[in-house]
Simulated scan of single mutants.
Amino acid sequence: MQTLGSNGRPSGRGVSMRMGSAGMAVMLVVFLVAVVFAANQNDVIGWLVAIISLGWLLIFSYVVLSLRSAARKAADRIQAHGGFGSAGAPQAGTAAVDRARDLKLDHSFKIVQVQVGVVREYLGKDAEMVERALETIEITSHNARSMMKGSSEGPVEGTVVD
């Protein structure tokens, strides 16, 4: 379990944050060395190298600060939506779970409706097709019931005929 700092964020810093700080320090040292050599040599090429290293330092700083800001916003958003569960997956709100279940149930009912049409079309003409459609209805109905609250039965496996 992580301890939280005074700002409500985890007190430990991630590897990427430490790498960004180390990279920033390296870029700053490169720039300072380029400036020192340019000042000692006092030639145009030395100052061009110093200006180029300053540009790279500014670009690197912008990227690191942007990524840190985005990471903080993402962490705040995740924390606002319930954080992560023990399996590492984001915990969904009950409304999202209910909506997903309702969509799955709706899909199951549509499959049953299609298969009823298949039974009506092939009844008396193709017994094998009717049997497969009835099996699909049975499997789909069982799976839909298992999605409802309070059902402990698992899903049924088989071939679904469209």
Rank of each mutant, 00 (worst) to 15 (best):
K110L: 10
V116C: 10
A75I: 04
S66F: 01
A70P: 02
D76E: 11
L134R: 04
G83E: 13
E135T: 15
E128A: 13
A87G: 15
A95D: 12
L134W: 06
A92I: 08
G82R: 00
A95H: 13
D76A: 14
A100D: 03
R77N: 12
L134N: 06
L123F: 15
A70I: 03
V64K: 09
S108A: 13
V112Q: 02
S66C: 02
F109D: 13
T94D: 15
A95M: 07
E131T: 07
D102I: 00
A95T: 07
A89C: 10
S141Q: 14
V118H: 11
A71T: 09
H107L: 05
E128R: 07
A75L: 05
L123H: 08
A89E: 10
S86E: 10
M129G: 08
G88A: 04
T94G: 08
V112H: 01
T94A: 04
A70D: 04
V97M: 12
L134Y: 01
R77H: 15
K104H: 12
A74R: 15
D102R: 01
S108C: 09
F109K: 10
E138N: 14
Q91S: 05
I111K: 05
V119I: 07
T140A: 08
L105I: 07
D126Q: 04
Q79N: 15
L103R: 08
R101G: 01
A95R: 08
S86T: 14
S86C: 10
L65M: 12
S86R: 11
A87N: 14
S108P: 03
D102V: 00
A89Y: 10
G117C: 06
H107G: 00
R68M: 12
R77K: 11
R77D: 12
A89S: 15
K110V: 08
D106T: 06
Q113K: 12
A92H: 06
A80C: 02
S86W: 11
G124S: 01
T140I: 00
F84Y: 15
V118L: 12
N143M: 03
R101Q: 09
Q91Y: 14
T136M: 09
R72C: 06
L67E: 10
G82K: 07
S141F: 10
S66I: 06
E135Y: 09
D98W: 03
L123W: 10
H142Y: 07
H81L: 13
R101K: 00
L123N: 13
V114H: 12
A100K: 09
S86N: 15
G117A: 00
I137V: 00
R72I: 11
R132I: 07
L134S: 11
D98K: 03
A100G: 02
R72E: 10
I111Y: 02
